[in-house]
Design a protein around this nucleic acid. Sequence first.
DNA 1: GCGCATCTTGCAACAGGTTGCAAAACCAAT
DNA 2: ATTGGTTTTGCAACCTGTTGCAAGATGCGC
Lengths: 330, 330
Amino acid sequence: MAVTLRDVARAAGVSASAVSRAFTPGASVAPATRSRIMLASAKLGFQPNRLAASLTTGRTRLVGIVADDFGNPFFLRVFDLFTAGLQARGFRPLLVNLQAGTPATEALGMLREYAVDAAILISATLPYGFARTFRDAGLPVAHCFARANARPDVPQSGIDDAQAGRLAARTLIGRGYVSLGYLGGPQQTQPAQDRFNGFQDETAKLNMTIVSAYAAAWSFDAGRATMQTMLENGPCDAYFCADDVLAIGAISALRDAGLRVPGDVGVIGLNDMEMAGWAGIDLTTIAQPVADIVAACIEQTLALIENPGLAAEARIFPARLVLRGTLRPV
Amino acid sequence: MAVTLRDVARAAGVSASAVSRAFTPGASVAPATRSRIMLASAKLGFQPNRLAASLTTGRTRLVGIVADDFGNPFFLRVFDLFTAGLQARGFRPLLVNLQAGTPATEALGMLREYAVDAAILISATLPYGFARTFRDAGLPVAHCFARANARPDVPQSGIDDAQAGRLAARTLIGRGYVSLGYLGGPQQTQPAQDRFNGFQDETAKLNMTIVSAYAAAWSFDAGRATMQTMLENGPCDAYFCADDVLAIGAISALRDAGLRVPGDVGVIGLNDMEMAGWAGIDLTTIAQPVADIVAACIEQTLALIENPGLAAEARIFPARLVLRGTLRPV
DNA sequence: GCGCATCTTGCAACAGGTTGCAAAACCAAT
DNA sequence: ATTGGTTTTGCAACCTGTTGCAAGATGCGC
């Protein structure tokens, strides 16, 4: 059915090797031969099969994208950047949509079946050993949005969650909020803990105590439900929510309880996803430089493919305050 | 580096064919032999290379997902459903992120290189001939969220946009709104036109005239900007926005102009994306049964792989009204 | 016109599986 | 034991490209 190398070879009156070389930049072919081959290819509609080529070259130019949070709108931008970025560099993304609890070995298997050149883990919630399973199997792997770690097991990129937490605390303190609350994502996830730690470090300097709670998921509903529970003991002056969606859910609960934001209570989120800036939401938040983080991750991944022995490095970017309308003025 | 069939064959003391058959359900292997092979495979960590297999079987179990709108949060859910659905049936999604204006032949080339078994177009904005280019090249293809068409060129699934438009009109008319406006997405896209046509059909029955405008993209900013322009001639009683994100942008413009929603002006959107239900947005909208649409599309695609001669069929689902807080009570 | 260096080309082996075919092994019945 | 039928197995060819090697072609300087 499909046109093969040998069909073209026959049509152009050359050997199969010649056709292969015509499609390999820098290979030894006479210009006249090459153009004759290209002509025949165009006429027959030939397109080299990269998978067949991968058998000998050992490269598929396929990169596995492993993600487990398709609920958070923040990730749409991330997928866009990853897929476009890989595509621009001649790689094609193969998606693995991790259902909660899929073991690492199974995800690994799904990718090895297709001989991907590398895998990228896009997740803040994946357990710690996940990336290591991939690396130990000899598959180049990078972890995006992982916990900041000066000496990581695999290349990683993201923000320093503790720094983001400190920034949130300083921002709230600077506005004169006194009793502070923290609303995190699932407790077993690193970002939820690290953001809390940074937040607490800064408040502890002033001997402030903070209340905290962890939502069951990084979602609107979980944020809303958790805030409702927190409110049973009365509201704080302001809350740091470890994620924008969580923050929006929390605000919904606050307003339902008759509290005005920012009139009665301040809220600051994290991520600066697109809709944080939408009217009706207008959320003050801490931004991750997503484009930089993704670009760094792609760079790390491709470097690792070139040189599998490369030492793992952490690319950590600063988080940045984005002021909108959910905190009172200074 | 990687463990191959022959390594396992050697370890298990059988031929390569035996190993291949051990991994092929229903193939002729003695149970004892199979378990010996499986044991050896497990010990060596062997995993069949599906790409190598595809050379002889002609099947990669790869499905190309072609999408061009990573800006609309609605699509995150769609990606989730597609990737999970394909995965559950043993297919792996290969993503093509279409930049505006990428010609169909180029997208096709990216997929043929990897010998995908089929392609799925996920887009309401792709030009009409796109899918046909794929089909004419002999690649099974289905189009999700395409224009409802009783006799389509390729299998398609989605809602009947005209019906959705009629539903919007009837809803607004039923609430007593008199002067009505339509805010569509990019004018050259089918859904923007068809939703308008349905909307107009219904209003024409009552001899109402409607004002209409088309946004430059299916985005918040475009919706907001277009509504600002529309307001120069004074507001309508209510607007039907052909997409939720557009509607949210439009509401932002209305409120900025000092108009209350739903006090002064009513707004109804389309899609019922998750955040339409969030507090602070609370958008009345028309829902597409996304899960059904995606499931139908996957089904159609896999059926087409099995039987490439299958006649193209349109699976059209009814759109449904979701009442929230942006229309005045009846 | 010759010799030598450089290009170009085809052959054949190979990458990692699959599969038609025929031989070998097995089983039960005579 | 022998026969006939069914299973199981291995051989070898094949899927589509790539690549080392050596032979053939070309070009250049003298």
